[in-house]
Design a protein around this nucleic acid. Structure first.
Ligand SMILES: [Mn+2]
Ligand SMILES: [Mn+2]
Ligand SMILES: [Mn+2]
Ligand SMILES: [Mn+2]
Lengths: 224, 224
DNA sequence: AACTATTTTTAAGTATACTTAAAAATTTAT
DNA sequence: ATAAATTTTTAAGTATACTTAAAAATAGTT
């Protein structure tokens, strides 16, 4: 299937995970195309039996569409893991490369990469890597920093973004998958979260506190 | 530039190296497209200043086209080198993957791969890898087996093919980049070459004896 | 040199993946 | 409930990269 189709199916999959309002417009925004193009593509994918399309209704992936999405996501996260391990590249850079490489990787090569890395269950952002059958065996017990308790110490389990500025910020302050942070104060009304990392106190706004995921202990989501 | 453009420019470059008859038809055959499509593309590339096009004349790359070709070739051969080193993949498989990956690789990633491998000068087929400026510093002193002398012993310096059957044949008989072979007899009239590898005698027809390149000694083309 | 075969070019048409503009439906706000 | 705002859809059109069919030019053969 084409790059456009794979990216579209992946975007639908990811959006459906987060919200229950997966209509053309959101996908269009995500992919940087017009709403008209997204509607058009949705219709085409319905013909290919990759999703169910009904005018003005939510887009819902078929089993086939779901498999395709997971296969692309698998390749994306395996590439990220490999590039991160082998080369000194930032989280943002590995994401950018993986966004392209994911579409040009045979299942065979994906399996080789996975094997080489010891079949990792998480990528460098803390996102789970589906296995060769498209199955995610790990359960995610993490939650966003915005919902963490004052005074408690957590482990970063996921940095859910693909924004360069965010990753630069993370790199600068030691916000890294697996690292420990303490929530010193929650400013509920102003939607800000104050944390302590490496003895530095940082005040996060909502944009950042809702894409940084943490776990209470090192158990589940940390397997690196 | 698009995949189609990159593959076209690369095909022109490679053909011009071998022959002096680089017209649309040959490129069309190489890329598996119609002659009409090749002529069409040639015209478009002329507008983009990637090659010089004159009706019924040879296609000649511009400096810009040449650079693009070398950049794609560099990425191709770096990928082949990396995949060959890291994973247990055949020469044919690494070529297949590289044919796609070469178009989705940033210059930055290419440099990282090169660095990681110690800036190799040759890929696993024995083909030279251009440096980041598109320069090939090695000089190729090798020649085809069909032109080798009876009784002499040589070192395989290049396996110039992308045919699976050929690579299977090579793997089966120990014909590998860097290995030693002896030419036991040249059947000039019948265009066949008899060689001895690992104490086995093999009779090669013209198809194979003209794509296996050898060197007299281990000097130039062997730097693995 | 003339004829034939081959190659190249032109012409017309297709599929994919987009665009903008306007109509239709839905959602939100008053 | 009505009006306004937003989103979705339709319609028409574009660029890229191909196709087949036929015309034109070149290259090879007698
Ligand atoms: Mn990513
Ligand atoms: Mn992608
Ligand atoms: Mn190759
Ligand atoms: Mn290619």
């Amino acid at each position: 299937m084409s790059v456009a189709v794979e990216n579209f199916v992946k975007a639908v999959y990811k959006n459906a995970k987060r919200t229950n309002d997966t209509k053309p417009g959101i996908i269009a925004k995500e992919l940087g195309i017009s709403n008209a193009a997204a509607t058009d593509m949705a219709k085409k994918l319905a013909v290919k039996d990759l999703l169910h399309y009904e005018k003005y209704q939510e887009l819902k992936l078929t089993v086939k569409g779901n498999q395709m999405a997971l296969n692309v996501i698998r390749k994306h996260r395996l590439w990220e893991s490999l590039l991160f391990k082998m080369f000194d590249m930032s989280l943002h850079d590995i994401h950018r490369e993986a966004e392209l490489l994911e579409h040009q990787t045979s299942d065979l090569l994906a399996n080789k990469i996975s094997e080489y890395l010891g079949n990792p269950k998480f990528d460098p952002h803390g996102d789970p890597i589906p296995d060769k059958n498209g199955i995610i065996t790990t359960t995610d017990t993490s939650f966003t920093l915005s919902k963490a308790n004052e005074g408690k110490t957590y482990i970063i389990s996921r940095l859910m973004s693909d924004d360069k500025e965010f990753f630069d910020f993370c790199a600068q302050h030691g916000l890294k998958y697996g690292n420990t942070i303490t929530v010193s104060k929650q400013f509920i009304k102003n939607k800000m979260t104050q944390i302590v990392v490496n003895n530095n106190t940082i005040l996060l706004n909502e944009d950042f506190s809702t894409i940084i995921y943490v776990n209470e202990n090192e158990s589940k989501n940390v397997q690196h």
